[in-house]
Structures are given as C-alpha cells and as structure tokens.
Amino acid sequence: MTVEETIKKDIETTFGELVRVEIERKHRVRAYTPRNMVLPMLAYLKQRGFHQFTLLTCVDWIKDGKFELVYNLYSLNYNVHVLISTKINRDKATMPTAINVYEMAFDYEREIHEMFGVEFEGHPRLDEFLLEDWKGIPPMRKDFDTRKYVEEKYGMKDLTKELFTRKEQPYRGPGSNG
C-alpha cells in the first residue's frame, strides 16, 4: 500500500462517509470535506504529523454561489500534500478560524477576508492586510470588474475592444434569423 493510500484509508476510517478522499496523483491527496468537519480534520492531520501549513486559498465558484476554501497541508514524513476542500455559501460567508490549530493560518485568513470577504469566526484581527481604505466589494471575487475599476479610477480605455468587433453589414441578408 502506498503512503497516499494509507492516508486515504486513515482519513476515511476516522471521518467515515462525511469526507470524500481522492488520490489526485503521487504526493497529492484531496479530501472533500463539509464545512463543520474542517477543523477536526486539521486537528487530526496535525496530530498525524502534517506540520506544514502550506497554504490556504479560496476559489470563487460564482455560478454555484459557493466559495471553495482549500487548506493545503504537508508532511515531511509522508511526503504528501493533503488538500482539504470545503465549500461554503457565498453570501455572508463564514468559517471558523483555524489559527488555534495552525497559527500559520493567521495571515492567510486575513488575506482571504480582505480579498473575498469570508468572515473567519474567532479570528482576533481581521483588519486591513494588503489593501488600504477599500470600500467596494472584495476585489478577488469574480463579480469585481477590474476593467470598470481601471476606467473609473485611472481613465484608461480598452484598446482592443473596438478593433475586434466586426462592423455589422448594413443589411445582413434575408437568410439571417434575426
């Protein structure tokens, strides 16, 4: 049994059917986890020796109305990254903070709070991190229109837009359906 399979089996026996575990490739195990199981999972993996909190990131699945939080943990002993994916609701997104398990999550959570607007419950300092005096919607969300922002803030135009829309012929022909 490979290391990845061992980890998969261990997670499955510990968390049962709540968690779906996949081996993505060598060195990568992915666990699809419900929101409330993330913290127990992090605690479990930390105790298993996953010392490295490699990253925490967020993906905005705007069509599904979900944010996907991805916790990436690494263990030197197993030489495996476990990626814990959880989907949370996009509006009024909240998530319990992980800093009590991994203190490295401190700045990652601040960043995600600022860029996506996810509230991390229990985080002591969700203040300004990279941005300054930001008023609009969090900028990394998919519905934030950078082009509009640039046009309004700096007065720049999209040069390619006009060039590549073909000029409509005056009469498109009787065959057209419109």
């Binding site: 490699t54 990253l55 990131t57 993906v59 905005d60 991805v70 990436n72 700045d107 990652y108």
Partner: peptide, 22 residues
C-alpha cells in the same frame, strides 16, 4: 507553489501563488 484551477476555458479560473516569503 502554484495552486491552479481551470474551468476548461481559455482563461485560468484561479491561480494562487504560494510564495515562501509568506
């Protein structure tokens, strides 16, 4: 590290840069 998400389109859906300095 890069965490890259694609939705099958011509643009990347998400790219997270994991810099060691973080």
């Amino acid at each position: 590290g890069f965490y890259v998400v694609s939705d099958g389109g011509v643009l990347p859906y998400r790219l997270h840069v994991r810099g060691p300095s973080f």
